[in-house]
């Protein structure tokens, strides 16, 4: 709705390339984060209870991604009901 939002959705060609580099860096970083997974063994924190989910391959990576996605989705959903104009209480 705001002006800045509109500008961001119509990026200039130069920003496109910037954005591509950014994604590239992110991809490399993520790869770097996953690669050592082959060499490191994680503890299963609740071994005694028979829960070994947290010791599976890449657990922290996908868990983090989906947890964050869920939190953003929930926030977005609640925002529909909870958001009010900035000056709501001043009226």
């Amino acid at each position: 709705m705001s002006a800045s939002g509109n500008q961001r959705s119509r990026p200039s060609p130069s920003r496109w390339s910037k954005r591509r580099t950014r994604w590239l860096i992110v991809a490399v970083l993520l790869a770097l984060a996953i690669v050592p997974e082959f060499f490191v063994t994680h503890y299963a924190h609740f071994e005694s209870l028979g829960i070994e989910l947290d010791a599976r391959f890449g657990f922290y990576a996908w868990y983090s991604f989906f947890a964050c996605g869920a939190m953003i989705a929930i926030a977005k959903l609640l925002g529909i009901f909870l958001k009010r104009r900035d000056s709501y209480y001043d009226e």
Binding site: L30, T41, A61, F65, A67, C68
Partner: peptide, 16 residues
Amino acid sequence: SHLLSQFQLLLFAGLA
């Protein structure tokens, strides 16, 4: 292990 899991946690949060 701890370092790695923390890095993954943070980086994939960043990805999200």
